[in-house]
Computed example of a mutant assay.
Amino acid sequence: MAGDGRVRRVAASALCLLLPLAGCAGGTAADSARTEVQRLLDMRSAALLRHDEGAYDATGARGEYTRLRALPLASWAYRVTGLRRTAAGATADAELTYRVAGYDRAPVDTRRTLTLARTAQGTWYVTADRPAGRSGQQLWDQGPVTAVPGAHSLVLGAGQSAADLRAYARMADRAVPAVSGQWGTDWTRKVVVVVPRSLDGMAGLLGSPAADYRGIAAVTTGEAGGAGRTPADRVVINPDAYAALGTLGKQVVLTHETTHVATRTRTTAATP
């Protein structure tokens, strides 16, 4: 009996030693998978920035590339913040930051959820990339992006004709010097205007119910009162309400929203 007790104590001690090792092995495997997924997303980002469709396609689903190809990007990067293994592969939580070339001093920062699978050889690839949780959509989530540059503006649209977007650009190009004439030139003197297909599209971009913006022709995103680096500003149009305005009303709306862009670092959230 005493011998049996010693055997049990030895076995228990050995098990206690093995359990931490098993935990370390599991942790190492999880860390390895997360590192592999991060590397995959780095490759995907680099391919997008250099317009290498073949290399992008090699990292997984290519629909996003088609929708994004017209967007002039200065930077694009994912940071994996979490990885959950699933029966089919894995789901990754990631922060996406990007800047539009020539317009953004600071990046847009948004959260994304990516679905991943593995090839027969064990290589990860992306099967889907969508807004995370309560994060708002990005314009390319609503369809291919059309970009129309102006003298002082960049108009980005989804579900809008290039001709209609050029009309927005003309209005924005008049708004920028008008605002500079009153406020001064200590701002970017450029504006990015985003035009979704409809009110529902606007609400999707802002991550809020459509009822919150019914009858509102446009809003400007970004944080007021920032010190130094403020998030990239966007004038987001409600095309349904905007279309109901006359020419003067449309110009007033874009000039008003451009004023928010110009004064962003000098105003507070209470500023109308």
Rank of each mutant, 00 (worst) to 15 (best):
Met1Ser: 12
Met1Ala: 12
Gly3Arg: 12
Asp4Trp: 13
Gly5His: 08
Arg6Met: 11
Val7Leu: 15
Arg8Gln: 09
Arg8Glu: 09
Ala12Gly: 03
Leu15Gly: 04
Cys16Trp: 15
Pro20Trp: 11
Ala22Thr: 08
Gly23Ser: 11
Cys24Tyr: 13
Cys24Phe: 15
Cys24Pro: 00
Ala29His: 11
Ala30Asn: 10
Asp31Leu: 13
Ala33Ile: 04
Arg34His: 04
Ser45Thr: 07
Ala46Asn: 10
Leu49Lys: 07
Asp52Cys: 09
Gly54His: 10
Ala55Phe: 15
Ala55Asp: 14
Tyr56Asn: 01
Asp57Ile: 00
Ala58Lys: 10
Gly60Arg: 06
Gly60Cys: 03
Thr66Asn: 07
Leu68Cys: 00
Leu68Met: 15
Pro72Asp: 08
Ala74Gly: 14
Arg79Thr: 13
Val80Met: 07
Val80His: 12
Thr81Asp: 10
Thr81Pro: 03
Leu83Asn: 05
Arg84Cys: 01
Arg85Ile: 04
Thr86Cys: 08
Ala87Arg: 12
Gly89Arg: 06
Ala90Gly: 07
Ala92Trp: 13
Asp93Ala: 13
Glu95His: 13
Leu96Gly: 01
Thr97Gly: 07
Tyr98Ala: 08
Arg99Met: 04
Ala101Val: 05
Ala101Glu: 14
Tyr103Ile: 08
Pro107Glu: 08
Val108Ser: 12
Asp109Ile: 08
Thr110Met: 09
Arg111His: 14
Leu114Arg: 06
Leu116Gly: 02
Arg118Cys: 06
Thr119Cys: 06
Thr123Pro: 00
Thr127Gln: 04
Asp129Pro: 02
Pro131Val: 12
Pro131Ile: 05
Gly136Val: 03
Gln137Ala: 15
Gln138Ser: 11
Asp141Met: 05
Pro144Val: 03
Val145Ser: 02
Gly150Met: 02
Leu154Gly: 02
Leu156Ala: 02
Gln160Ile: 03
Ala162Arg: 12
Leu165Trp: 03
Arg166Phe: 00
Arg170Leu: 05
Arg170Lys: 06
Asp173His: 03
Asp173Val: 05
Arg174Phe: 01
Ala175Val: 04
Pro177Arg: 00
Val179Ala: 02
Ser180Asn: 01
Ser180Cys: 01
Gly184Met: 00
Trp187Pro: 09
Lys190Gly: 10
Val194Phe: 02
Pro196Asn: 14
Arg197Cys: 01
Ser198Cys: 08
Leu199Trp: 01
Leu199Asn: 07
Asp200Thr: 05
Met202Gly: 09
Ala203Thr: 13
Leu205Phe: 04
Leu205Gly: 06
Leu206Val: 07
Ser208Asp: 15
Ser208Ile: 13
Pro209Gly: 12
Ala210Phe: 11
Tyr213Gln: 11
Tyr213Trp: 14
Gly215Glu: 14
Ala218Asn: 10
Thr220Ala: 11
Glu223Thr: 15
Ala224Thr: 10
Gly228Asp: 10
Arg229Ala: 15
Arg229Leu: 15
Ile237Asp: 08
Asn238Gln: 09
Leu245Arg: 09
Gly249Pro: 14
Val252Glu: 12
Thr255Trp: 10
Glu257Ile: 06
Glu257Pro: 03
Thr258Cys: 07
Thr259Leu: 13
Val261Asn: 07
Ala262Phe: 11
Thr263Glu: 14
Thr267Asp: 09
Ala270Pro: 05
Thr271Lys: 05
Pro272Met: 10
